[in-house]
Design a protein around this nucleic acid. Structure first.
Lengths: 296, 296
DNA sequence: GACCTTCATTGATACGGATCAAGACTTGGG
DNA sequence: CCCAAGTCTTGATCCGTATCAATGAAGGTC
């Protein structure tokens, strides 16, 4: 089988924006060919469902651009987002006949998809890939447990501050390389207030109030509903209630690339193994008249 | 190396109470020998620490008897239990240099321990074992996400009812075999009010109040602080706010063993791959005088 | 451009659960 | 046997956040 892989197909993954940070990067040549042949790109509009709760997931894969949400809904309509997936994160549930949560597009998304049975066969044939999947799953488990602490014993203000720090982390940390973050530090929250509330275990009204509170306290400056400037990152860290971790994240993000820095202790939210891919340029000021941010 | 395994050592695992439900059962003969040689049994008293938060875990393994708690503590002392581990559940974190949470004995426990590096080597040499670990980790991840929903959008009463149902499930479901649960249905909560509160994201006072509330509503009858009779399992399910799942669990537990019943949709809490091992006999009435329960 | 829908904000009020405080009960040690 | 320490329960009060309600701003459609 492996013999028949045409050379032209290789270029598909070669052009992939997340090839260095996703699971694919860990595969050897043959396995990469196999992944390559099995993969296809699909796009979904914000709000579309990739896999419904309880349904057999037909596909698994990576987020290439945009944000996915994983959510669970109770009979009476209450909902919890159990994870947001950013570029390079894997989505879907291998080795199960039904997904325990819905997977939906929180923004317009591009996905690199694999047929689930095919992907499972590839995993079983390549222990090296299976090992990478295991490592990534263990990290996700750590992150989920960190989120349990956040939901179980932190106030909404703390959760919101933590969420913002996480977004900064995902925005400016590129895999192992650290980009020098722009000074001042900008923050783009790619999801709606509703999604933030559903993720943080609260309501849109409370989210709105806490954001305004932060602005009044001059911790952040609101540019528009999705764009902010962090005017006091130290205070933001303090508000998060986990200053130690927060300091590590913000500091890391703001340091220029150094020689092989230790990966910070950050199971915290790091939903995939490697951090994100979103470009700092997106969070930049544009100078005509007032303060504006280029939205995607 | 494999040549030197003396036959006598095999009996160690042969006698193990959880050999059919733990990861060990999935290993082939050679791998089992290897696991056997690497394992040793240790006991800890309630309250003792197996691995401290942030510390390099020296050992991983299975719970043989008793209950472990995994907890995270914030700088100001707030604490969250992110998992309770029952017999047959695995504890410890492979492939990481530090544990993201403390592992402590919630009751007196017996553990089957492996030296972590040795266990990792065995995993890497046996893709079959690694696959089992992956499946079990994926299930734990599903369970953690279910718990996130519980913490994020359920009331304390609902959480408590869910917790009780889970304990029933773990008490009366033996791997694939279903024991006919005694009628009336008894419930032994093996942990303190404090641990319940820390697990359910609330306080001891609230736990106490909600338990008394359930008793007033005749959903349960309190025999002593750790032993209860479930007098209205339907209502308990309704209180949990997830009647569908609850019904599945309670009904499953109460059905006599049938021919190969489908594994219920229950990522919900099922912290390990297979459910528990605690003996129904422990929850049985003893007849001299009043109602009493044999505690371990 | 008028209309509708969705999203974010803001205010008023209500409630669940945390907190503080104290008492009852159990358990182990001298 | 009593005392000390820990556990569980119960009451009174307070606070954070949900809920209800209304308004303004933005985007999409005819």
């Amino acid at each position: 089988m492996a013999l028949s892989a045409p050379a032209t197909l290789e270029t598909k993954c070669d052009r992939c924006a997340i090839r260095h940070v996703s699971i694919c990067g860990a595969a050897d040549f043959d396995a990469q060919n196999e992944l390559n042949r099995a993969s296809h790109t699909r796009t979904f509009l914000a709000g579309e469902t990739i896999t419904a709760e309880g349904e057999e997931p037909g596909i698994v894969g990576n987020v290439v651009s945009g944000v996915l949400r994983m959510s669970k809904t109770m009979a009476d309509g209450r909902q919890q987002i159990v994870g947001l997936l950013f570029p390079s994160d894997m989505f879907g549930r291998v080795f199960s006949h039904e997904s325990n949560f819905a997977i939906e597009a929180a923004t317009d998304v591009t996905l690199c998809c694999f047929d689930k049975p095919a992907f499972e066969r590839i995993i079983l044939k390549n222990p090296q890939i299976e090992h990478e999947i295991l490592l990534s799953t263990l990290d996700e488990l750590d992150a989920a447990r960190d989120w349990m602490m956040l939901l179980g014993c932190q106030t909404v203000l703390e959760r919101l501050a933590s969420f913002m720090i996480i977004i900064v982390h995902r925005t400016f940390k590129q895999n192992d390389r650290h980009c020098p973050a722009p000074e001042p530090l900008f923050l783009t929250i790619p999801v709606s207030r509703r999604d933030m509330a559903t993720y943080l275990g609260t309501t849109v009204e409370t989210i709105s109030r806490k954001i305004q509170y932060m602005a009044r306290k001059k911790v952040i400056r609101i540019l528009d509903p999705k764009h902010f400037e962090i005017t006091n990152s130290g205070q933001l860290g303090r508000l998060s209630g986990r200053e130690d971790l927060a300091a590590a994240v913000i500091t890391q993000s703001m340091l220029p690339a150094s020689h092989e820095p230790a990966r910070p202790k950050l199971a915290w939210f790091q939903s995939g193994r490697n951090a994100s891919v979103a470009r700092p340029e997106d969070a930049v000021l544009n100078q005509d008249g007032g303060i504006r941010i280029l939205s995607r």
